[in-house]
C-alpha cells in the first residue's frame, strides 16, 4: 500500500470493529435465537408428522384420522396402542415395511422432546433477563415480542400501541394500504387473558396488556426491582 496512513486506519478500525462486535452480543439476542430455533423445530415437527401420516395411512388410515394431535399420534404408535379396526382399508404391511415408519415416529418424538427442552432453556433465560415482562406476558410471548422488535432496547423504545400489534405487521400493512380491518393484536393473541375473554373485549385487553408489558420491559431493561406480580395481578382483577 502506498500510504502508511491507510495501514494504520486499516489495523485500528479492524481491531476496534471486532471488539465492538464482541461487545454487541447480549442475552436478549440469545433469547431471539432460542425462539427462532423453537419456531423451526415446530416447522420440522409438522413436516415430519405429515410425512408420517401419509406413510402410516397406507397401513392404518382410520387411526391416523381419529388421532388428530401429532404428539399423541406419535406416542400411541410408539407404545403399540395403534390397533387396527377389523374392516380397515389399510393394507397389511410386513414388519420390514413398518420398520422405517416406526423409526420415523421415534425421531419425531425426539424432536418433540428436544423442542420442550429448548422451551425450558427459554423460560430460564427469560426469567433471568426479563423477569417482569415474563411475569406479565409469559416466556414464549415475551420472547416473540423480542423477536419482532429485534432487541430489548428496541422493544422498550416502541410505543405500547406498537407492542400491541407486534406480529400483526402484515395485517396492519393491509389495513394501511387497502383499508381492511385494523388488527387488534399480534403475538398477544396467545395470551391466556385474551384466549379466555369474550371476543368483544379482546381489543381492550390487548391494549391494557401491551401497556403493562411495555412498563415491565422498561423495568427489566433498566434492571429495576420486581413488580411483575403486581402488574399481572392488576390485569387479572380487571379482566380475569
Amino acid at each position: 500500500m502506498a500510504d502508511k496512513k491507510f495501514i494504520d486506519f486499516y489495523k485500528k478500525n479492524l481491531e476496534e470493529t471486532k471488539r465492538k462486535i464482541k461487545a454487541s452480543v447480549t442475552d436478549d439476542l440469545l433469547i431471539v435465537q432460542i425462539i427462532n430455533n423453537i419456531d423451526d423445530l415446530n416447522k420440522i415437527i409438522n413436516i415430519l408428522a405429515k410425512d408420517l401420516r401419509e406413510w402410516y395411512s397406507y397401513y392404518n388410515p382410520e387411526f391416523s384420522k381419529e388421532i388428530q394431535d401429532h404428539a399423541r399420534f406419535v406416542e400411541l404408535i410408539l407404545s403399540g396402542k395403534d390397533k387396527k379396526i377389523k374392516q380397515s382399508m389399510g393394507a397389511e404391511l410386513s414388519k420390514e415395511d413398518l420398520k422405517p415408519i416406526f423409526n420415523l415416529a421415534k425421531k419425531i418424538k425426539d424432536v418433540f422432546e428436544f423442542r420442550d427442552e429448548q422451551e425450558i432453556c427459554l423460560e430460564k433465560m427469560m426469567k433471568k433477563v426479563m423477569p417482569n415482562a415474563t411475569a406479565v406476558a409469559g416466556s414464549v410471548i415475551g420472547a416473540r415480542l423480542l423477536q419482532h422488535a429485534g432487541s430489548l432496547k428496541r422493544l422498550i423504545m416502541l410505543p405500547s400501541s406498537t407492542v400491541q400489534l407486534l406480529g400483526a405487521e402484515k395485517a396492519l400493512f393491509r389495513h394501511i394500504k387497502s383499508g381492511s380491518k385494523c388488527p387488534k393484536y399480534g403475538v398477544l393473541h396467545e395470551h391466556p387473558l385474551i384466549m379466555k375473554a369474550n371476543r368483544k373485549d379482546h381489543g381492550k385487553i390487548a391494549r391494557a396488556l401491551a401497556d403493562k408489558i411495555s412498563i415491565a420491559a422498561r423495568v427489566d431493561y433498566f434492571k429495576g426491582k420486581f413488580i411483575g406480580d403486581e402488574l399481572i395481578k392488576g390485569l387479572e382483577e380487571r379482566f380475569g
Binding site: Y10, N13, L14, T17, K18, K20, I21
Partner: peptide
C-alpha cells in the same frame, strides 16, 4: 452484517470496517 464485512475486509487490505 458487519460480522460478515469483517471477513471481507480481512482479505482486502484496502477496505476497513467501521461499526
Amino acid at each position: 452484517v458487519v460480522r460478515d464485512l469483517v471477513f471481507v475486509c480481512e482479505k482486502r487490505k484496502n477496505m476497513a470496517p467501521l461499526l
